[in-house]
Write a protein that binds this DNA or RNA. Structure first.
Ligand code: FES
Ligand code: FES
Lengths: 137, 137
DNA sequence: TAAATTCCGATAAAAATAATCGTATTTTTG
DNA sequence: CAAAAATACGATTATTTTTATCGGAATTTA
């Protein structure tokens, strides 16, 4: 509860890595190797980011991934949306159905939505670049 | 990812219900019935809240639960701590081990912690009473 | 044509969450 | 005292979500 998925965690690290090596195309294999992340999982994740327009890919030998925009322009919210098809704090917050209250009118829906927005704002206001240490330790 | 567990969701509803009926002791059965929540699950959850000091229970016939303090004095953070043994945004944030980076020094730990704190603050500043609609719909 | 790569669908394994069950204990009340 | 209505508690199961893996197809370079 209230935690980042590995997908998002790995993606943050990968995007930062690609940003640092933005002069070249970066292969999934290299990134996985350097960051010690599971290759298959990372690979799929990068493909998703590519499909969502955060990365461009080049096929074949000499292929790999490059950034489309700078990591200072990619928010955590954007990344979460791209990878996790948007999860909300409670089920109703992104849909139709009554999620919490089994009575006719939900007693907490509106304030829960407010809570949701506050959390969204944090992720909206944090970029992948913000999540990079300037000084280690 | 970033969502409330059913435990917390049910607990919010249950605490609000108990608050509305604070003149009497409320049985798990009644609460589950009125809110259409699974009895066994709710029952265990209330026992946990009791052990954590948020509720007092009375055994036997005429037994049930009462609040110890008002719901305007119980924060969501408190509730989450009581029910879920504290989950943090990434593994390292509540422990010892290196969680994200497999390299020697974690590249994102410190800013992730900042993110964590921002989220914590939201839950720290929201009470169960805050999560109650004044006007339905 | 071979090697390095992305791409894609399917599936499997693991972990976390949610729900259920059986039984013991406590208290009230008739 | 006995029965009923509760909580208390441990164990287990079921379900869902998350994480990881696999096998092969398509693409590009050299
Ligand atoms: S219906 Fe979603 S919070 Fe109540
Ligand atoms: S070791 Fe936890 S965020 Fe890096």
């Amino acid at each position: 509860m209230i935690k980042l998925s590995k997908k998002v965690e790995y993606a943050i690290l990968a995007l930062q890595y690609i940003a640092e090596n933005s002069s070249k195309t970066n292969t999934a294999k290299e990134i996985a190797g350097k960051l010690s992340l599971p290759y298959d999982f990372l690979s799929k994740l990068l493909q998703t980011l590519m499909k969502k327009g955060l990365l461009v890919s080049q096929l074949g030998v000499k292929g790999g991934y490059k950034l489309v925009k700078q990591i200072s322009e990619i928010t955590v919210e954007e990344l979460m949306n791209a990878l996790d098809e948007r999860s909300s704090i409670v089920d109703c917050a992104d849909g139709d159905s009554n999620c919490c209250s089994r009575t006719e009118i939900c007693d907490i829906r509106s304030p829960i939505m407010t809570l949701q927005e506050q959390i969204n704002n944090i992720f909206k206001n944090t970029t992948i670049a913000n999540l990079k240490n300037n000084i280690n330790i």
